[in-house]
Nucleic acid binder design. Structure first.
Lengths: 180, 180
DNA sequence: CTTGTAAAATAACAAGTGTTACAGTAATGA
DNA sequence: TCATTACTGTAACACTTGTTATTTTACAAG
């Protein structure tokens, strides 16, 4: 009766997400995306009413990507916040554009806590660990640790931080005990 | 002999700098700038060969602006790095677009140290103060402090940090003693 | 095989960009 | 007063953007 669909929503979203990873959200244009997906601009606007709606889905996918990244990051340390920090800094290093989208946005779409927490309640786990380790005010400690972690991640984003994984881990653990 | 100049380089640069302050470098367009300067696009291209050269001068001016900002920031603390951190964080809070241009650039034009140091050698002063205060490794301490300071500034940029000046100062001083 | 129909490609439109060509205006020495 | 000419504004060009109109294509039901 009708022609078969050749360009699926998945294919478009995949191509868009890869573009976001490499060049950031702002550099996704309809024509470049079409070329990337191996089609004209038509299938894009058939699938998405406009580019903004597409960008929204790419953003959601970036969130999911980060949460998967964090979930899969190896847990090596007994020091609270250390693994979270390692994952966060590594993400900033390896996925600069996605890090910008999620954590250095011009206008924040989702709250920081929401992004970190996600469905796995990562932060809560860390807070409980800190409390169990005898920290009197886990909230204040978390804030300081997070400022520190976010600082290292942000600096690695701009090439102003280049410690090795090993050095970073030692620094995070040292910072934790300093703040305790 | 000839007509008097009505639109000076200063007027154009002033308008462009104000635009950068409010909307960032990326949103400066020839036509918007012309409207802001109260003229057509012609005087702009008479003065500057192209927009890129204009942007370069706006960038230089942003550097100067930050260094003036830092120089004029009140010195209240005897704790090394504390005043520098306060100024940096306040700058991020009050001049978000300029902070992005200088300290969260997509491609860094000038090194971080160069920006901080400038002609006044701010950082060197702090390092000497730390050494005089008996710090065994001022360089390592500076790195940690700077990560912390940059983290707080970056978070205030995205609205994820909202401590008062007083609280911020106490936190910086506390961090310094923790790291010592 | 024909043909209706949905999908895809092509081409176009409107808006906005940097930049340039052109024309009018006004200041100043004669 | 007037001719010169630098300076300004207007309009245009070439390009890129999102989006839409139109044409072409391929599949499946008859």
């Amino acid at each position: 009766m009708a022609r078969k669909e050749m360009i699926s929503k998945q294919m478009i979203l995949d191509a868009a997400f890869q573009m976001a990873r490499e060049e950031g959200l702002a550099n996704i244009t309809a024509r470049k995306l079409a070329e990337r997906a191996g089609c004209s601009t038509q299938p894009i606007f058939r699938t998405y009413q406009n580019m903004d709606l597409l960008i929204d889905e790419v953003y959601e996918r970036a969130i999911q990507f980060f949460q998967d990244y964090y979930s899969l990051y190896p847990r090596l340390s007994s020091t609270p916040f250390s693994d979270l920090g390692m994952a966060y800094i590594a993400f900033a290093r390896e996925e600069k554009e996605l890090f910008r989208i999620l954590f250095v946005p011009e206008k924040r779409k989702k709250g920081l806590y929401e992004l970190l927490n996600g469905k796995t309640e990562n932060v809560k786990t860390e807070l409980q660990a800190a409390a169990a380790a005898g920290c009197p005010d886990p909230g204040a400690l978390f804030m300081k640790m997070w400022i520190f972690i976010h600082g290292a991640a942000s600096m690695s984003l701009t090439g102003d931080y280049d410690l090795s994984d090993q050095e970073t881990r030692e620094m995070l653990e040292s910072a934790y005990h300093s703040f305790l």
